[in-house]
Amino acid sequence: MMNKSRTLNIALAFMAVIWVSPFAWLLSTAVDPIATGQLRFPKELGLNNFAQALTGESLLQLWNSLFIAGGTATLTLVVASGSAYALSRLKIPGRNAFLWSLVLLRMLPPTGILVPIYFAAQSVGLLNNVGIIVALTVLNLPFAMLLLKNFFDTVPVELEEAAHVEGASLATILRRVVLPMSKAGLAVVWFFTFTSAWNEFLFPLLFSRTEDAFPMSMGLYSAFGRNGSIQYGFLAAFSIIYATPAVAVYFLLRRNMNTGFAGVGVKG
């Protein structure tokens, strides 16, 4: 018994070390201006690495990432909510089959459709960050539409009729009734699209022609081995900054899901 639990403890501790050590490495290296890449307590403490990761080219990459992720999330949300609302309210035969087949297309690895998308973007002169936004939006739309349609389906049509009788236009009904009641769904779509676009590597690799258009994912990749030696401290700080939105999104989403779930009808 005693023996067994000791083995178990050792095994668990081992696992914990494996789990924690990359993060420990990342943190200790990021705050160590003279980091060498070894896992150790920092010799000195300082935020130089972060300062470096937030200036010049790196800062530009942060802006590019925010532009691509924010643009993709917002464009996806606007287009998907419009079409999902139409799909939810108009009784188009076969609309569910239609949506699911779009989702199936999305399940294919994007690599498979990379070539046609590349040539399409090239022919309309969109081999830049706007092109990335458009391409990622197209890829994200089916799932976003499916999700939002299901949220809109839970908004009772009587609420819209009540608003209509009170004099609300369709735009007003959407803005004041349907969208506020689907807040949770809109938040999920926006945040998930944001994260996936933020993490995107493949499309920037192909579409970003100039270095000042690189998002952080590309910047991180190209920073390896730059200037002859690897700047571990800078890379660690850069990675932490790169990871921040994902963590932020997690907390924002949690808060939104807890407070904003409005898809409940009012019955006696």
């Binding site: 009772p156 009587e158 009540a162 004041r176 009641m181 409005a262 009012v266 019955k267 006696g268």
Partner: peptide
């Protein structure tokens, strides 16, 4: 006045 009241829950 609707049967389900149709109040705006938000």
């Amino acid at each position: 006045v609707f049967q389900s009241y149709a109040l705006y829950p938000h």
